[in-house]
Computed example of a mutant assay.
Amino acid sequence: MGKIKVRNIKIYAHHGCLKEEAIIGSEYLVNISVNAPLKKASLSDSLIDTVDYVHLNRIVKEEMKIASKLLEHVAKRILHRIFSELREVSKAKVSVSKINPPIGGDVENVTVILKEKRTA
């Protein structure tokens, strides 16, 4: 078993409960970590034997384009896509961070982290 991480995927998106957030949008950082069997790929040097991180990045970009009120909702959609499209993934962790959130203070970011294991 091994782990693949895609860190600090920078995306401009339109998530939030405030009407202004949906209109103006803001910057986000998304991190993904997936567990999968990587031994075969380490020996074969073949992309077909591993989890393609280009595919992971595409999932994030596509799901972040769909506006949501809550970061939890976006993270859950990303997890769902990972498990439905990448059969070799056994565990996944997704964090979605909103940079400079409009919460009435000097806050660098807020982050939601969701983890899941494949059940079947």
Results as ranks from 00 to 15, higher is better:
Gly2His: 09
Gly2Leu: 10
Lys3Val: 13
Arg7Trp: 05
Asn8Val: 07
Ile9Trp: 02
Ile9Ser: 02
Ile11Val: 15
Ala13Gly: 04
Ala13Thr: 05
Ala13Phe: 07
His14Val: 03
His14Asp: 06
His14Ser: 06
Gly16Glu: 07
Cys17Pro: 00
Lys19Asp: 14
Glu21Ile: 01
Ala22Met: 14
Ile24Ala: 13
Ile24Val: 15
Glu27Cys: 01
Tyr28Phe: 15
Tyr28Val: 02
Leu29Val: 04
Val30Gly: 04
Val34Arg: 01
Val34His: 01
Asn35Gln: 14
Ala36Leu: 08
Leu38Glu: 07
Leu38Val: 14
Lys39Asn: 14
Lys40Cys: 04
Lys40Trp: 03
Ala41Cys: 12
Leu43Val: 13
Ser44Cys: 13
Asp45Leu: 12
Ser46His: 15
Asp49Ile: 08
Asp49Gly: 09
Tyr53Asp: 04
Arg58Trp: 01
Ile59Asn: 04
Ile59His: 07
Val60Pro: 03
Lys61Tyr: 08
Lys61Thr: 10
Glu63Asn: 13
Ser68Thr: 10
Lys69Trp: 00
Lys69His: 09
Leu70Met: 14
His73Asn: 12
His73Tyr: 13
Ala75Gln: 04
Ala75Pro: 02
Lys76Tyr: 14
His80Ile: 12
Ile82Phe: 02
Ile82Val: 13
Ser84Ile: 12
Ser84His: 09
Glu85Lys: 04
Glu85Thr: 07
Leu86His: 08
Leu86Val: 13
Arg87Met: 09
Val89Asn: 04
Ser90Cys: 04
Ser90Lys: 11
Lys91Pro: 01
Lys91Asn: 12
Ser95Ile: 00
Val96Tyr: 03
Ile99Glu: 00
Ile99Arg: 03
Asn100Asp: 10
Pro102His: 08
Pro102Leu: 08
Ile103Gly: 08
Gly105Tyr: 01
Asp106Cys: 06
Glu108His: 06
Asn109Ser: 15
Val112Ser: 05
Val112Trp: 03
Ile113His: 04
Leu114Pro: 03
Leu114Trp: 02
Thr119Ala: 10
Ala120Arg: 11
Ala120Gly: 15
Ala120Gln: 12
